[in-house]
Design a protein around this nucleic acid. Structure first.
Length: 611
DNA sequence: GCCGTTTTCGGCCCGACTGTTTTCAGTCG
């Protein structure tokens, strides 16, 4: 059973318990374990084989361990079954409606036995909800609107579309000029999470602002085009939903509280909870305004995140790491990684041209990559199995390699490597002959078919591909498409161990709907000493700048510059790639003729000018 | 339900805003 499936059952239990009126910390304990499982790199099924191992995980005690064992054995467990005798499962959807929560949903259920969104919506439209305590006409209107949003299945957004929407909001708010000091993006976008649920902004108020400043700012913000509904509006915050269903929260904050507010609204919630627990142990209390002493409420810090972390005796924790996955302990021990940065990247190792399904020519891709300051790129079109993408057979692959090398002569200031994105067939064999793969500089292998294979079979397939001596990089290793397609099912630990053993690098695919490997798997790779490359998988010159999303995910995976192969200068990069049989040093030798070893990175200095 | 240099009980993060009611519970992040 997958960790995700177990987590879902526990999460449902938490919500049902909340509906049932259980104490906060009881249902929170179920949520906590669900979160733990979702971020766990090992399979809970494997851990649970050893009776004592389960309770070694934080947040899992004897009772929870029994629950998990029962879920793994039977697919469900008594706690949830008992609750589902009391409440219908559809009530979990009712709770998701904006303005409704467990208490009100439970009340509607007990009064009218209405347990679906449609039933509750009908009661609201008929004016029957206002008869219940705590409900009025306004609540009914809100519920009708929330039900409409629910039926449209509003959900999460890919990071690039969320970022584009955020830029529009920021641009709009900045029109206030000197009436504000600054506006910053917080929330999951600031943490670079792979998908975004809503947008959070902090507006910093200028010193000595007029008393009605917040009112003026709020008025202006609400003139943003494409606002569908104002959700809340008060003394220091305004919330609204845009017509694309993205929710936006803006908080207006005084300078002395800016750091506390950024920390608070950047989250994650679990990171904040941990910080607050730590603060309490040190005799402090932390809220969105300041870190203060519990005893006499004396202000200790608040203007910057740095000073708050410092007072909590922690190194500064970059937003990408704030997930309560060990970063606080590492910050305490001065053991946080020094995260890779976009400017460390010297080359892009997966991209397509008109030879298969790309939009641009080799030269166009090369020119665009050079203008980004890269030292090298690998041009990697598809192989023949991917017929829909006009994949290349052996003959065309060699012709394309020759074309790349010819282009390398013409285009100055960047090195073009002849590559391939060769398909991993159902059997685990690669889609092109070894003699052809031997003649290429970079062999990237990936799966594009039979994606729903059984776990054991898929593991064998991937292992076979990794053990093929010509495979150097595995591209988009789990094949997931965010919000659209589930990842392949295979034993990640076995695969990473095989990569390590065979010197195969894992790709962190920067394309916003892939971001694959994902953060927790990159962290696993790093812990196992598996090298990573960050590539865009560009199908057009416009895609090349997507690299930044890949770097963000790499940072979320705790990767340092030294963990990422394409931060290396060309000669070192080629030396670090797995050596293919027979062809060992052809590229390195040819390189020695054109460029002195350890040539400086041209970025920002001589990019585009090298003769 | 978990957890422990305040250890087997009694904590477990904290505040804004809404809609309702008239002082506050519920929702939300």
């Amino acid at each position: 059973m997958e960790n995700r499936a177990v987590a879902r059952i526990l999460r449902e239990t938490a919500q049902l318990l909340e509906i049932d009126g259980a104490l906060y910390n009881r249902y929170r304990s179920y949520e906590r374990v669900a979160e733990l499982l979702e971020n766990l790199s090992e399979r809970i099924e494997d851990i649970a084989r050893d009776e004592d191992k389960l309770t070694e995980l934080p947040g899992i005690g004897d009772r929870m361990a029994e629950h998990i064992q029962e879920i793994l054995r039977t697919g469900d467990y008594a706690v949830r079954q008992k609750l589902l005798k009391k409440f219908p499962a559809t009530l979990l959807q009712v709770v998701q409606l904006q303005s409704l929560g467990p208490k009100k949903a439970a009340l509607i259920w007990s009064a009218y036995k209405a347990g679906t969104v449609a039933e509750v919506q009908k009661l609201a439209e008929e004016g029957k909800l206002r008869l219940l305590p705590g409900f009025g006409e306004k609540s009914e209107q809100n519920i009708v609107k929330a039900a409409a949003v629910f039926h449209k299945a509003a959900g999460r957004f890919l990071i690039n579309s969320a970022e584009a929407a955020a830029e529009k909001v920021i641009e709009h708010i900045q029109k206030l000029g000197k009436q504000i000091e600054s506006v910053s993006s917080a929330g999951s976008l600031h943490r670079s999470r792979e998908t975004i649920g809503d947008l959070d902004f902090i507006v910093l108020l200028p010193k000595d602002h007029p008393p009605d400043a917040i009112e003026t700012i709020t008025e202006h913000i609400l003139t943003l085009p494409a606002i569908d509904q104002t959700l809340a509006r008060g003394g220091n915050k305004v919330s609204f939903r845009m017509t694309n269903d993205l929710q936006v929260d803006v908080r207006m904050i005084e300078k002395e509280s800016y750091g506390a507010a950024m920390l608070y609204f950047t989250g994650s919630k679990e990171h904040n909870v941990s910080l607050r627990g730590r603060a309490l142990k040190m005799g402090y209390t932390l809220n969105e305004y300041a870190l203060s002493t519990v005893k006499d409420e004396k202000r200790i810090a608040g203007a910057t995140e740095e000073e708050i972390y410092a007072k909590l005796k922690l190194d500064f924790i970059p937003p990408e790491l704030r997930e309560n996955l060990g970063e606080i302990g590492a910050a305490e021990m001065h053991a946080l990684p020094s995260l890779v940065e976009l400017r460390d990247i010297r080359g892009d190792l997966q991209m397509h041209t008109v030879a298969s399904d790309g939009k641009n020519t080799i030269e166009e891709m090369a020119e665009a990559a050079r203008s980004l300051g890269y030292e090298y790129i690998a041009v990697t079109d598809h192989s023949k199995a991917v017929t829909v993408a006009n994949g290349m057979d052996e003959k065309r692959t060699l012709e394309q390699a020759a074309a790349i090398r010819a282009a390398n002569e013409r285009v100055k200031g960047i090195r073009l490597l002849a590559g391939i994105e060769v398909d991993i067939l159902k059997s685990g064999k690669l889609d092109l002959d070894n003699e052809v793969l031997a003649q290429l500089d970079v062999v990237v292998a990936s799966v594009h078919s039979y994606m729903r294979m059984e776990r054991d079979e898929m593991t064998e397939r991937m292992l076979a591909a990794i053990e093929n001596p010509y495979t150097q990089i595995i591209a988009h290793p789990t094949g997931r498409l965010l919000l659209r397609r589930e990842p392949f099912d295979y034993d990640m630990e076995k695969i990473l161990d095989a990569c390590r053993k065979n010197g195969v690098a894992m790709e962190c695919n920067a394309y916003p709907d892939r971001l694959d490997l994902r953060d927790v798997h990159l962290k696993m790779a790093r812990e196992r000493g598996v090298k990573v490359v960050v590539s865009t998988d560009s199908h057009s010159t416009r895609h090349l700048p997507l690299m930044r999303y890949g770097v963000q995910v790499a940072r979320r995976g705790w990767l340092e510059k030294k963990d990422v192969l394409n931060t290396l200068p060309l000669d070192q990069f080629l030396a670090a790639l797995r050596t293919k049989p027979g062809t060992a040093n052809a590229v390195v030798e040819s390189l020695a003729k054109t460029q002195p070893p350890n040539a400086p990175n041209p970025r920002g200095r001589t990019a585009g000018k090298r003769a």
